[in-house]
Every structure is written in C-alpha cells, then in structure tokens.
Lab assay of single mutants.
Amino acid sequence: CHSECLGNCSQPDDPTKCVACRNFYLDGRCVETCPPPYYHFQDWRCVNFSFCQDLHHKCKNSRRQGCHQYVIHNNKCIPECPSGYTMNSSNLLCTPCLGPCPKVCHLLEGEKTIDSVTSAQELRGCTVINGSLIINIRGGNNLAAELEANLGLIEEISGYLKIRRSYALVSLSFFRKLRLIRGETLEIGNYSFYALDNQNLRQLWDWSKHNLTITQGKLFFHYNPKLCLSEIHKMEEVSGTKGRQERNDIALKTNGDQASCENELLKFSYIRTSFDKILLRWEPYWPPDFRDLLGFMLFYKEAPYQNVTEFDGQDACGSNSWTVVDIDPPLRSNDPKSQNHPGWLMRGLKPWTQYAIFVKTLVTFSDERRTYGAKSDIIYVQTDATNPSVPLDPISVSNSSSQIILKWKPPSDPNGNITHYLVFWERQAEDSELFELDYCLKGLKLPSRTWSPPFESEDSQKHNQSEYEDSAGECCSCPKTDSQILKELEESSFRKTFEDYLHNVVFVPRKT
C-alpha cells in the first residue's frame, strides 16, 4: 500500500485506493498535508475557505447554543480562536489581540433580562453583547459592586439597553466600559436606550469621564423622579442622539420631579488639616426662599486615587461607600458681607490618608415646582503625618564578641513616609551569675543571650482551647457569634421535631 494509506488498500502504491488515510483526505486521495488554498479540518480532512465560511455563517444565523462559528488559524479551520487571539470578521482569520481579548457573548432569543446578581454573573467577562440587555433589578445585597464585577467589562451592545423598574439602582456607572450601543435591534418605538419607572436612579454616568455613542435609535425617559433633566440632556449631547427624540420621548413632568437638581456650584473657602482632623468651610448658599434650606450634607471617604465619582458603590438597598454628615444651616444675616460661612470639623480620621470630599445642599421643593440647590466639586484632601507606631517583631542576635545583629519589621501604621529608623542602645553591667558559677561542674549549661522565638506554653494553649472559665478566673470563653447562636437554635429545633416524629412513629394507638 501507499505510504499515506492506513489499515489496508485495494490497489498497491495508489493513494486513492486506501481504506483510511494516515494524515489527511483531499478529493478522494490521501495526502501528507493540505496544500494551499485548503485548510486542515478536524485533523483528517482538507477543506477550502468557502466550506469553513459556510459553517461560520450557519452557526451565526441559527443562534443555536453550542454550535461553533468556525475560524481560520495556522492553516486550520477550527471552532474558535485560541487564547490571546480574536477573529477578523472580513476573512475569519485569528489575529493577536492588542491588550485583553474581546469576548463576544451571543444571547438566546436576542435579549437577556438581568433581574438578579445570579443572572448578571452569566455575563461575567463579556466585552461584546450580541443582542439586547434588559435591566430589571428590584433589590439585593452589595448590588453596585456585584454588577460592576460582572457587567463592568461590557464595551458594546449590538441591540438596545433597557432599564425598567430597577428600584435598587442609583447610577449606571457599573457599566464602566460601555462605549457603544449599535441599535441594530430596537425596542418598540425605535428606541435604543429605554429608561422607565426607576424610582431611585439619580445618575446615568459621570459624563466628564465617560463617552457613549448610540449609532441608531432614540432615547426614552419616563417616570424617573430623581433623575434630573440636565442629566438626560447631557446624554443626548454626548451620545449623538440630540435631535432624534420626539416631543413625548422625554417626559418633562415625570423626570426629576422629586430630585434636588443642583444648578449652582458650592466653593470651599477654608481648608485646614491635622493628622486626624480636617476643618472645612464653604461659601454660604440661600435659595430664593431661605426657609427652603434644610441644611447641608457632607460626604467623605478614603480615596487612594483621584478618580472618585459621587455615586460609586451606591445602591438604593443601603450600600453606600460614603460617610454622610448632616449639618444645620448657619444663622442668616441681613448683611451679605457678614454672612457666616458654614463648615464642619471632621474628626477621627487616619493620618497621612487622602480623602475625597464634597458637600451639597438639602432643600425642600418650592411652590413653583422649581428645584434649587448647590453642590461642590469633589475635592481631595490629605491629612498630615504623625509619629508612626512601633516597629514590629524586633530580633537581636550576637554573632561574635563585638557585634549584635538587630532586625525588625516595619510598623503596622507608618502614618507617613518613613525615611529612617533611630536605634538606641545602652551598655549593661555583666551578670554576677557568670562569676559565681563553678565551671568545672559536669552538665553545666552556660547562660545564653542568643534570641529564641517566643512560644506559647501548654497552660496558655489549654486556656485558649477551654470553653469555660478556669477556677483562677484568668480566662473566659469568647462570646458566641450570631451565626453560632442561630445554628444552635436550628439544631435544637431539629432535635425537638425529630423526637416528636419518633414518638408518633414508635407509639401507635392500640386498636379498641
């Protein structure tokens, strides 16, 4: 048989008469490798580009789960590009990614509803959504962080984005990388972005840091009482949809009607710091009717980097990364020049730590249904340095008659930039024990000054392991946590139920 035959053949030295091919099969003959313009397919066939392209389009058009959109890589027609490569849609070739590779997620039936953290986790790592997304989240724990972890990498949506009755959302900033909504599939009414009845939605994105392009379709905003109209108009300008909307697409009466839409800028007039305090004062603000001013709200939190936005980490279910302080308005003076500047002394802060701070007014709604208010920009203030805590785990070892090696770990709280350490030492008198000992005694162990690591005695271990207080009263049991108490109650309830079950099964009433 021919060298490319495997198993047997019907005619000697003829690659077209093989029972099976050793390498690849091409047009009725066995070959060692697939010549151009053919590609290896499933490690035994040679196919042309049209064959591989037909497989790709067949799966793409069917949208069946589990099928493969075949691509070409290293002269092979394979189910998908290997790690580190992405497909070129024009020629199906796998090309190296520039940075992290995109991950295209194809949605069944063309859309997916995100109504819980669990459903959001199914899209973790996706960068391109081939379909439409509907966000409908009523509640949950730590929602802002969970949504950002699972949806934060999405850069492109081919269909539309719909935010509907998501009472738990305060902001859409968890879509931190969303840059493009194509609108290839539109919501009824030709809408590519749809926001309806979101009672706590206050911000779409921080438009000073976020760009969003909507290729096709219109915007729809109705019944978002805490979303200011200025935020919607800003989205029109940034996304390129200005002029597409009709009169009733953006409701003037049901958007922002319960919001404090600040239209003035508060400026800080005085800032002073110490290692654990920050004193702030800002310019006074009074609405047209000074009785509408209820006070100020001061927001602050630790910020290692200057990239904080107002609604980071917030949701309507209680999660809030900001510390909020309510401040009463100052006494009002008739003389504008003698107006008191409101302020606040922030206490209990960490030394040498940068804080993000902003302040906003708290006002009631005027009778004319106009909203007044003022808010400052987010500023960054760093507390002063102070003395560091003591170095940890000092170790001293003498390696000769004239040297001592000293080692330690950095302090747990540096409280500033540590530039150097101060080492103090003092000579001590020799131990009298060394002169009084009889060095001729056998088995004498000389006193040693070398360091030995501390260890816990058996008594201390027994005390720590004991669940009861000892007789001397030195140790006591740790208080039980809520989960331990709940577990004990469940076990007790189970024992009672099981005992009742045994009584009912074992003891049967005697027939009379």
Rank of each mutant, 00 (worst) to 15 (best):
V397H: 15
F268R: 02
Q354I: 09
R281A: 14
C126K: 03
E109G: 14
L298E: 01
T353M: 03
Q382E: 11
G189I: 01
S338M: 13
T383R: 02
E237D: 15
S376W: 01
S401N: 15
W207R: 14
I157G: 02
D257R: 09
A145M: 09
K209N: 15
G217L: 01
I271Y: 02
A259C: 06
S230L: 06
T241A: 14
D312L: 09
K112L: 02
L298F: 13
S274Q: 14
N263F: 02
T213S: 07
V397A: 15
P287S: 01
D377A: 13
T127Y: 08
D115F: 07
G131S: 03
G183K: 03
S269L: 12
P391S: 01
N307S: 12
G183S: 06
A144Q: 09
C105G: 02
R244V: 11
P411V: 08
Y191K: 08
N255Y: 02
Q354E: 09
V324R: 12
S401F: 11
N248G: 08
S119Q: 03
G217Q: 11
S321R: 13
V170S: 07
R347G: 09
P394M: 05
R332Y: 09
V128N: 15
Y300K: 06
D384L: 09
I404A: 00
G243Q: 12
S401G: 11
Q199N: 11
K177P: 02
L293T: 01
I327C: 05
E264Q: 05
A149I: 07
I357A: 06
I404V: 14
D289A: 03
L298P: 05
D289I: 02
N340H: 11
C261I: 03
G343F: 03
A149D: 11
Y160E: 05
K267F: 13
H233D: 13
I232P: 06
W286R: 05
G318V: 06
N307Q: 14
G183N: 06
E302S: 12
T254F: 07
P225L: 01
K162T: 04
G183A: 12
S208H: 02
N142T: 13
A259R: 05
I405A: 03
Y167P: 10
T213P: 05
A168M: 05
T353W: 05
N198A: 04
N263Q: 12
N248Q: 07
S208F: 11
L107C: 14
G159V: 03
W286A: 03
V359H: 00
A303L: 10
I154P: 03
R179A: 12
W322D: 11
I154A: 10
L265K: 14
V170G: 11
R347L: 07
T386M: 06
S158K: 11
S398Y: 04
S230T: 04
I214G: 04
S239F: 07
L392W: 15
S132M: 01
E122C: 11
T118S: 13
Y285E: 00
R176W: 09
G140I: 14
W352G: 03
I157V: 12
F220L: 08
S119N: 15
Q314F: 00
Y191I: 15
G373T: 04
R182Q: 09
I188N: 03
Q382A: 09
D257V: 14
R179Q: 10
I163H: 00
L219M: 04
L201V: 09
T185V: 13
A168R: 15
E237M: 10
S260N: 02
F358W: 10
L298N: 04
L186F: 10
G348S: 08
L266S: 01
V238R: 14
S376M: 10
W344E: 11
P388H: 02
P342F: 08
N200F: 07
N320Y: 13
Q216T: 14
G131D: 00
Y372L: 04
T371G: 01
I214V: 14
G189E: 15
D206H: 06
R369E: 05
N340M: 14
Q314V: 09
C317K: 05
V170K: 08
E148P: 09
L227S: 04
P351V: 11
Q354H: 10
V324F: 03
L143S: 09
K103L: 04
Y194K: 15
S333C: 15
Q199Y: 04
D257I: 03
F220M: 15
E184I: 10
N399I: 12
W207F: 14
P342Y: 03
L280N: 00
G131Y: 02
C261G: 04
F268S: 03
E236K: 10
P336S: 09
A356V: 06
R281S: 11
L133I: 08
L147E: 00
T254N: 12
E264S: 09
V381A: 04
N150K: 05
G243A: 07
L201Y: 01
C317I: 15
L229D: 11
W352Q: 15
K209R: 12
I157H: 03
D312P: 13
N130E: 07
D289Y: 03
F175P: 04
L212E: 04
S401E: 10
F358P: 00
Q121R: 13
L108I: 08
H222K: 00
Q245F: 06
C228P: 01
F358S: 10
W205R: 02
D393Q: 13
S269W: 15
G152M: 10
R369G: 03
D377K: 12
L345D: 02
E231N: 07
V325R: 14
G125R: 02
Q121E: 04
L392D: 07
F290Q: 01
G243E: 07
N200L: 09
K350S: 11
R182H: 13
R138C: 00
L293F: 03
L147M: 11
R138A: 15
P287C: 02
P388M: 02
S398C: 08
L133V: 11
S389C: 04
E264K: 02
E302P: 10
S119M: 08
P287K: 01
D315T: 13
T361R: 01
Q314Y: 04
L212N: 01
A145T: 04
D335C: 14
D197I: 01
Q216H: 09
F193K: 02
E155M: 05
T273C: 11
W282S: 01
T323H: 15
L265Y: 03
S400P: 12
A374G: 08
L153H: 10
P329T: 09
G131H: 01
I135R: 01
K409N: 07
E187Y: 03
L345V: 07
S402W: 06
Y270R: 12
T353L: 07
